[in-house]
Amino acid sequence: MERTWRWFGKKDKITLAQLKQIGVEGIVTALHDVPLGEVWTREKIHELKEYIESYGMKWSVVESLPVVETLKYGGPDRDHQIEVYKESLRNLGEEGIKCICYNFMPVLDWARTDLAHDNPNGANNLYMNWGEFAYFDIYILQREGAREDWAEFSKEHKWGRDLVAEADEIKKTSTPEQDHALVENIVIKTQGFVSGNFSEGDSAPVQKFRDLLKLYDGIDKKKLQENMKYWLEAIMPICDEYDINMCVHPDDPPYPVFGLPRIIGRAEDIQWMLDAVPNKHNGLTFCAGSFSAGEHNDCVAMA
Protein backbone atom coordinates (compact mmCIF):
# COMPACT_ATOMS: atom_id res chain seq x y z
CA MET A 1 0.00 0.00 0.00
CA GLU A 2 1.35 3.40 -0.95
CA ARG A 3 -0.08 6.70 0.30
CA THR A 4 -0.68 8.73 -2.84
CA TRP A 5 -2.41 12.03 -3.52
CA ARG A 6 -3.93 13.64 -6.61
CA TRP A 7 -1.98 16.83 -7.39
CA PHE A 8 -2.91 19.14 -10.24
CA GLY A 9 0.49 20.56 -11.07
CA LYS A 10 2.44 23.61 -10.08
CA LYS A 11 -0.68 25.83 -10.23
CA ASP A 12 -2.44 23.67 -7.61
CA LYS A 13 -3.23 25.60 -4.42
CA ILE A 14 -2.03 22.56 -2.50
CA THR A 15 1.75 22.42 -2.71
CA LEU A 16 4.05 19.44 -2.75
CA ALA A 17 5.59 20.68 0.50
CA GLN A 18 2.18 20.48 2.15
CA LEU A 19 1.60 16.98 0.80
CA LYS A 20 4.97 15.84 2.08
CA GLN A 21 4.09 17.28 5.49
CA ILE A 22 1.01 15.06 5.83
CA GLY A 23 2.89 11.88 4.91
CA VAL A 24 2.15 11.51 1.21
CA GLU A 25 4.58 9.14 -0.51
CA GLY A 26 3.46 9.17 -4.13
CA ILE A 27 1.93 11.76 -6.43
CA VAL A 28 -0.90 11.17 -8.90
CA THR A 29 -0.73 13.80 -11.63
CA ALA A 30 -0.41 14.58 -15.34
CA LEU A 31 1.14 17.01 -17.80
CA HIS A 32 -1.85 19.34 -17.72
CA ASP A 33 -0.16 21.92 -19.95
CA VAL A 34 0.29 19.61 -22.96
CA PRO A 35 -2.47 20.24 -25.54
CA LEU A 36 -4.89 17.41 -26.21
CA GLY A 37 -3.64 14.97 -28.83
CA GLU A 38 0.06 15.93 -28.59
CA VAL A 39 2.96 13.75 -27.49
CA TRP A 40 4.14 13.92 -23.89
CA THR A 41 7.84 14.45 -24.48
CA ARG A 42 10.42 12.73 -22.36
CA GLU A 43 11.87 16.13 -21.46
CA LYS A 44 8.58 17.39 -20.00
CA ILE A 45 7.99 14.11 -18.16
CA HIS A 46 11.51 14.16 -16.73
CA GLU A 47 11.21 17.78 -15.57
CA LEU A 48 7.99 17.13 -13.62
CA LYS A 49 9.30 13.84 -12.24
CA GLU A 50 12.44 15.57 -10.92
CA TYR A 51 10.37 18.38 -9.43
CA ILE A 52 8.24 15.87 -7.50
CA GLU A 53 11.29 13.93 -6.37
CA SER A 54 12.92 17.14 -5.09
CA TYR A 55 10.22 17.11 -2.38
CA GLY A 56 11.03 13.53 -1.37
CA MET A 57 8.13 11.87 -3.17
CA LYS A 58 7.70 9.95 -6.43
CA TRP A 59 5.44 10.29 -9.44
CA SER A 60 3.49 7.09 -8.83
CA VAL A 61 0.47 7.33 -11.14
CA VAL A 62 -0.42 9.24 -14.29
CA GLU A 63 -4.01 10.48 -14.17
CA SER A 64 -4.74 10.96 -16.93
CA LEU A 65 -2.96 10.41 -20.19
CA PRO A 66 -6.04 11.55 -22.14
CA VAL A 67 -7.73 9.30 -24.68
CA VAL A 68 -8.82 11.74 -27.39
CA GLU A 69 -12.34 11.57 -28.80
CA THR A 70 -11.29 10.18 -32.19
CA LEU A 71 -10.07 7.01 -30.45
CA LYS A 72 -13.46 6.58 -28.84
CA TYR A 73 -15.72 7.17 -31.83
CA GLY A 74 -13.27 5.75 -34.38
CA GLY A 75 -12.44 8.88 -36.38
CA PRO A 76 -10.33 9.02 -39.55
CA ASP A 77 -7.20 10.03 -37.61
CA ARG A 78 -7.58 7.24 -35.07
CA ASP A 79 -4.43 5.34 -36.11
CA HIS A 80 -2.35 8.53 -36.03
CA GLN A 81 -3.55 9.29 -32.51
CA ILE A 82 -2.74 5.73 -31.46
CA GLU A 83 0.86 6.38 -32.54
CA VAL A 84 0.88 9.63 -30.55
CA TYR A 85 -0.38 7.74 -27.49
CA LYS A 86 2.22 5.00 -27.93
CA GLU A 87 5.01 7.57 -28.11
CA SER A 88 3.80 9.17 -24.87
CA LEU A 89 3.73 5.72 -23.25
CA ARG A 90 7.28 5.02 -24.41
CA ASN A 91 8.47 8.29 -22.90
CA LEU A 92 6.75 7.55 -19.61
CA GLY A 93 8.21 4.06 -19.59
CA GLU A 94 11.72 5.40 -20.25
CA GLU A 95 11.29 7.58 -17.13
CA GLY A 96 10.12 4.60 -15.06
CA ILE A 97 6.50 5.74 -14.67
CA LYS A 98 4.43 2.62 -15.13
CA CYS A 99 0.89 3.11 -13.85
CA ILE A 100 -1.57 4.95 -16.12
CA CYS A 101 -5.13 5.76 -15.08
CA TYR A 102 -7.35 6.73 -18.03
CA ASN A 103 -11.01 6.69 -18.97
CA PHE A 104 -13.02 5.79 -22.05
CA MET A 105 -16.05 8.00 -21.41
CA PRO A 106 -17.33 9.77 -24.54
CA VAL A 107 -17.23 13.61 -24.45
CA LEU A 108 -18.05 13.87 -20.75
CA ASP A 109 -15.65 12.78 -18.06
CA TRP A 110 -16.87 12.81 -14.44
CA ALA A 111 -20.07 14.82 -14.06
CA ARG A 112 -21.15 17.07 -11.17
CA THR A 113 -23.56 19.98 -10.92
CA ASP A 114 -21.80 21.71 -8.00
CA LEU A 115 -18.06 21.79 -7.42
CA ALA A 116 -18.24 23.36 -3.95
CA HIS A 117 -21.39 22.10 -2.25
CA ASP A 118 -21.56 23.44 1.31
CA ASN A 119 -21.98 21.02 4.21
CA PRO A 120 -23.31 21.81 7.70
CA ASN A 121 -19.87 21.31 9.22
CA GLY A 122 -18.33 24.05 7.07
CA ALA A 123 -16.64 21.72 4.58
CA ASN A 124 -17.57 21.51 0.93
CA ASN A 125 -17.44 18.81 -1.71
CA LEU A 126 -18.37 17.92 -5.26
CA TYR A 127 -22.09 17.24 -5.65
CA MET A 128 -24.47 15.76 -8.20
CA ASN A 129 -28.07 17.01 -8.32
CA TRP A 130 -29.88 14.81 -10.84
CA GLY A 131 -32.74 17.28 -11.25
CA GLU A 132 -30.32 20.05 -12.20
CA PHE A 133 -28.47 17.67 -14.50
CA ALA A 134 -31.73 16.83 -16.28
CA TYR A 135 -32.55 20.55 -16.46
CA PHE A 136 -29.21 21.24 -18.13
CA ASP A 137 -29.87 18.51 -20.71
CA ILE A 138 -33.49 19.44 -21.45
CA TYR A 139 -33.44 23.24 -21.26
CA ILE A 140 -29.84 24.43 -21.72
CA LEU A 141 -28.36 21.81 -24.01
CA GLN A 142 -31.81 21.22 -25.56
CA ARG A 143 -30.76 17.78 -26.73
CA GLU A 144 -33.25 16.00 -28.94
CA GLY A 145 -34.89 13.18 -27.00
CA ALA A 146 -33.65 14.45 -23.63
CA ARG A 147 -37.10 14.73 -22.05
CA GLU A 148 -37.97 11.18 -23.06
CA ASP A 149 -34.61 9.85 -21.88
CA TRP A 150 -34.99 11.43 -18.43
CA ALA A 151 -38.57 10.14 -18.11
CA GLU A 152 -37.29 6.63 -18.81
CA PHE A 153 -34.33 7.13 -16.46
CA SER A 154 -36.70 8.13 -13.64
CA LYS A 155 -38.80 4.99 -14.13
CA GLU A 156 -35.83 2.67 -14.45
CA HIS A 157 -34.01 3.66 -11.27
CA LYS A 158 -36.95 3.69 -8.87
CA TRP A 159 -35.63 6.59 -6.82
CA GLY A 160 -39.12 7.94 -6.26
CA ARG A 161 -38.14 11.02 -8.27
CA ASP A 162 -39.58 12.43 -11.48
CA LEU A 163 -36.51 14.14 -12.89
CA VAL A 164 -38.44 15.70 -15.77
CA ALA A 165 -40.82 17.32 -13.30
CA GLU A 166 -37.85 18.51 -11.23
CA ALA A 167 -36.28 20.02 -14.35
CA ASP A 168 -39.56 21.78 -15.19
CA GLU A 169 -39.71 23.26 -11.69
CA ILE A 170 -36.12 24.50 -11.93
CA LYS A 171 -36.98 26.16 -15.24
CA LYS A 172 -39.62 28.31 -13.53
CA THR A 173 -37.13 30.05 -11.25
CA SER A 174 -33.72 29.62 -12.81
CA THR A 175 -31.75 32.78 -13.60
CA PRO A 176 -29.15 33.40 -16.34
CA GLU A 177 -26.51 33.41 -13.61
CA GLN A 178 -27.61 29.99 -12.37
CA ASP A 179 -27.65 28.63 -15.92
CA HIS A 180 -24.15 29.98 -16.47
CA ALA A 181 -22.97 28.29 -13.27
CA LEU A 182 -24.32 24.93 -14.48
CA VAL A 183 -22.54 25.30 -17.81
CA GLU A 184 -19.33 26.16 -15.97
CA ASN A 185 -19.61 23.18 -13.62
CA ILE A 186 -20.78 20.53 -16.09
CA VAL A 187 -18.79 21.61 -19.14
CA ILE A 188 -16.03 24.17 -18.64
CA LYS A 189 -14.40 23.58 -15.26
CA THR A 190 -14.53 19.80 -15.38
CA GLN A 191 -14.28 18.84 -19.04
CA GLY A 192 -11.91 21.66 -19.94
CA PHE A 193 -9.52 20.69 -17.21
CA VAL A 194 -9.78 16.93 -17.46
CA SER A 195 -10.21 16.24 -21.17
CA GLY A 196 -8.94 19.42 -22.81
CA ASN A 197 -12.04 19.65 -25.02
CA PHE A 198 -12.97 23.05 -23.55
CA SER A 199 -11.28 26.12 -22.12
CA GLU A 200 -12.30 29.10 -20.01
CA GLY A 201 -12.27 31.34 -23.07
CA ASP A 202 -14.74 29.38 -25.19
CA SER A 203 -17.39 31.78 -26.46
CA ALA A 204 -20.05 29.14 -27.18
CA PRO A 205 -19.35 26.10 -24.98
CA VAL A 206 -22.89 24.70 -25.19
CA GLN A 207 -22.79 24.61 -29.00
CA LYS A 208 -19.32 23.09 -28.87
CA PHE A 209 -20.71 20.45 -26.52
CA ARG A 210 -23.52 19.72 -29.00
CA ASP A 211 -20.97 19.39 -31.81
CA LEU A 212 -18.97 16.85 -29.80
CA LEU A 213 -22.11 14.82 -29.11
CA LYS A 214 -22.82 14.67 -32.85
CA LEU A 215 -19.54 12.84 -33.38
CA TYR A 216 -21.14 9.88 -31.61
CA ASP A 217 -24.22 9.62 -33.82
CA GLY A 218 -24.65 5.92 -34.50
CA ILE A 219 -22.13 4.87 -31.84
CA ASP A 220 -23.80 2.42 -29.47
CA LYS A 221 -22.33 0.45 -26.56
CA LYS A 222 -21.15 -2.39 -28.78
CA LYS A 223 -19.35 -0.05 -31.17
CA LEU A 224 -17.71 1.87 -28.31
CA GLN A 225 -16.52 -1.45 -26.89
CA GLU A 226 -15.06 -2.41 -30.28
CA ASN A 227 -13.20 0.90 -30.44
CA MET A 228 -11.81 0.44 -26.94
CA LYS A 229 -10.64 -3.08 -27.79
CA TYR A 230 -8.98 -1.84 -31.00
CA TRP A 231 -7.08 0.85 -29.08
CA LEU A 232 -6.04 -1.40 -26.20
CA GLU A 233 -4.75 -4.12 -28.52
CA ALA A 234 -2.68 -1.50 -30.36
CA ILE A 235 -0.95 -0.16 -27.24
CA MET A 236 -0.39 -3.43 -25.37
CA PRO A 237 2.97 -4.16 -27.08
CA ILE A 238 4.35 -0.91 -25.66
CA CYS A 239 2.92 -1.76 -22.25
CA ASP A 240 4.57 -5.20 -22.45
CA GLU A 241 7.91 -3.67 -23.42
CA TYR A 242 7.96 -1.17 -20.53
CA ASP A 243 5.83 -3.09 -17.99
CA ILE A 244 3.20 -0.30 -17.99
CA ASN A 245 -0.15 -1.00 -16.37
CA MET A 246 -3.18 0.62 -18.04
CA CYS A 247 -5.93 1.06 -15.42
CA VAL A 248 -9.28 2.23 -16.78
CA HIS A 249 -11.33 4.46 -14.49
CA PRO A 250 -15.00 3.48 -14.27
CA ASP A 251 -17.74 5.66 -15.67
CA ASP A 252 -18.65 8.46 -13.29
CA PRO A 253 -21.58 8.33 -12.78
CA PRO A 254 -22.02 4.73 -13.97
CA TYR A 255 -25.02 5.50 -16.20
CA PRO A 256 -25.47 6.56 -19.83
CA VAL A 257 -25.71 10.37 -20.03
CA PHE A 258 -26.73 12.76 -22.83
CA GLY A 259 -27.63 9.79 -25.02
CA LEU A 260 -24.02 8.55 -24.95
CA PRO A 261 -23.12 4.93 -24.25
CA ARG A 262 -21.07 4.05 -21.19
CA ILE A 263 -19.08 0.84 -21.13
CA ILE A 264 -17.20 0.68 -17.80
CA GLY A 265 -19.90 0.96 -15.15
CA ARG A 266 -20.88 -2.55 -14.13
CA ALA A 267 -19.28 -5.82 -13.07
CA GLU A 268 -20.09 -7.38 -16.45
CA ASP A 269 -18.44 -4.42 -18.21
CA ILE A 270 -15.23 -5.01 -16.31
CA GLN A 271 -15.33 -8.71 -17.12
CA TRP A 272 -15.89 -7.89 -20.80
CA MET A 273 -12.84 -5.59 -20.84
CA LEU A 274 -10.56 -8.11 -19.14
CA ASP A 275 -11.71 -10.89 -21.47
CA ALA A 276 -11.54 -8.73 -24.61
CA VAL A 277 -7.84 -7.94 -24.13
CA PRO A 278 -6.43 -10.69 -21.87
CA ASN A 279 -3.12 -9.04 -21.02
CA LYS A 280 -1.76 -8.55 -17.51
CA HIS A 281 -1.21 -4.84 -18.32
CA ASN A 282 -4.89 -4.30 -19.11
CA GLY A 283 -6.44 -3.46 -15.75
CA LEU A 284 -8.86 -1.40 -13.70
CA THR A 285 -8.83 1.58 -11.37
CA PHE A 286 -11.23 0.24 -8.74
CA CYS A 287 -12.95 3.54 -7.87
CA ALA A 288 -15.48 2.45 -5.26
CA GLY A 289 -16.96 5.95 -5.28
CA SER A 290 -17.90 5.73 -8.95
CA PHE A 291 -19.11 2.15 -8.79
CA SER A 292 -21.20 2.69 -5.66
CA ALA A 293 -23.01 5.63 -7.30
CA GLY A 294 -24.92 2.94 -9.21
CA GLU A 295 -27.49 0.93 -7.29
CA HIS A 296 -26.80 -1.93 -9.72
CA ASN A 297 -23.30 -2.41 -8.28
CA ASP A 298 -22.33 -4.45 -5.22
CA CYS A 299 -18.86 -3.06 -4.58
CA VAL A 300 -17.90 -5.69 -1.99
CA ALA A 301 -18.80 -8.52 -4.36
CA MET A 302 -17.01 -6.76 -7.23
CA ALA A 303 -13.85 -6.39 -5.18
Rank of each mutant, 00 (worst) to 15 (best):
M1A: 15
W5T: 08
W5H: 10
K10S: 15
K13Y: 08
A17N: 11
A30T: 13
D33M: 14
V34T: 10
L36K: 12
E43Q: 15
K49I: 12
S64P: 04
S64I: 12
L65N: 07
L65G: 02
T70L: 04
D79H: 14
H80T: 13
I82K: 06
E83C: 08
K86Q: 09
Y102F: 15
P106C: 04
D109V: 13
A116I: 10
D118G: 12
A123Q: 13
Y127F: 12
A134P: 00
Y139P: 04
E144T: 08
A146K: 00
G160R: 11
K171T: 08
K172L: 09
T173Y: 11
T173L: 12
A181Q: 12
A181L: 14
N185Y: 01
I186R: 02
I186K: 00
K189T: 08
D202W: 04
S203Y: 01
L212N: 02
L215R: 06
K223A: 10
M236G: 01
I238S: 06
I238H: 05
E241Q: 12
P256Q: 13
F258Y: 09
R266T: 03
R266H: 10
A267M: 07
Q271K: 15
M273I: 07
A276E: 07
K280Q: 14
N282A: 00
A288I: 08
G294F: 02
V300M: 11
